[in-house]
Simulated assay, not measured.
Amino acid sequence: MVNANFYSSKYDDFDIQPILDNDRIMLSYTKCFLDQGPCTPDAKDFKKVIPEALETTCGKCTPKQRKLIKQVIQAIMDKHPEAWKQLIQKYDPENKRKEDFDKFLSENK
């Protein structure tokens, strides 16, 4: 799924609008990422790269992927803050990446 510089462009044109517009779908992705529910094939692919993407602040993400990720994260933060807290607890329990990730989220706003 990963080449030397970027994650696969397979999802660069992924239509995230249905996820953003549907809380049930958004929460099903979130539950997958938290190991609290089943994962669709797409969600499994995304889940595999979460630790590295967080570690590198999306260093291997294409510009399109960075934009998509920011939109999804912002939607989760806005609509489901409790789920966002759980994701932080799972993937960054010591808040080591918080400052870098906050900068990433605020880029090009």
Score class of each variant (00 low, 15 high):
Tyr7Val: 00
Ala4Asn: 12
Val72Trp: 11
Pro81Ala: 03
Arg24Ser: 11
Tyr11Ile: 14
Asp102Thr: 09
Lys85Gln: 13
Lys67Trp: 07
Glu52Cys: 08
Ala53Lys: 07
Asp35Ala: 02
Lys64Arg: 01
Arg66Tyr: 02
Lys96Tyr: 03
Asn108His: 05
Asn108Phe: 02
Ala43Met: 10
Phe46Arg: 07
Glu55Ala: 12
Leu27Gln: 06
Phe6Ile: 05
Pro41Trp: 15
Ala83Met: 00
Leu34Pro: 01
Lys109Gly: 08
Asn95Thr: 02
Lys48Val: 05
Arg24Thr: 04
Leu68Thr: 01
Ala4Thr: 10
Leu68Val: 08
Ala75Ser: 12
Ala53Trp: 03
Leu54Thr: 06
Lys98Arg: 12
Pro81Trp: 07
Met1Pro: 15
Ile69Ala: 08
Phe104Arg: 14
Thr62Val: 01
Lys79Glu: 15
Ala43Arg: 02
Glu52Thr: 10
Leu34Thr: 09
Asp100Val: 00
Asn108Ile: 04
Gln89Tyr: 01
Lys103Phe: 05
Ala4Pro: 15
Ile50Ser: 04
Lys98Val: 12
Ser8Asn: 13
Lys79Leu: 08
Leu105Ser: 12
Ser106Pro: 07
Gly59Phe: 11
Ile19Pro: 00
Asp42Cys: 07
Asn95Tyr: 04
Lys44Cys: 07
Asp92Glu: 15
Lys48Tyr: 05
Pro38Cys: 11
Lys60His: 04
Lys70Ile: 14
Gln86Ala: 10
Thr62Gly: 06
Lys98Thr: 06
Pro93His: 05
Lys98Glu: 11
Tyr91Asn: 15
Lys85Trp: 03
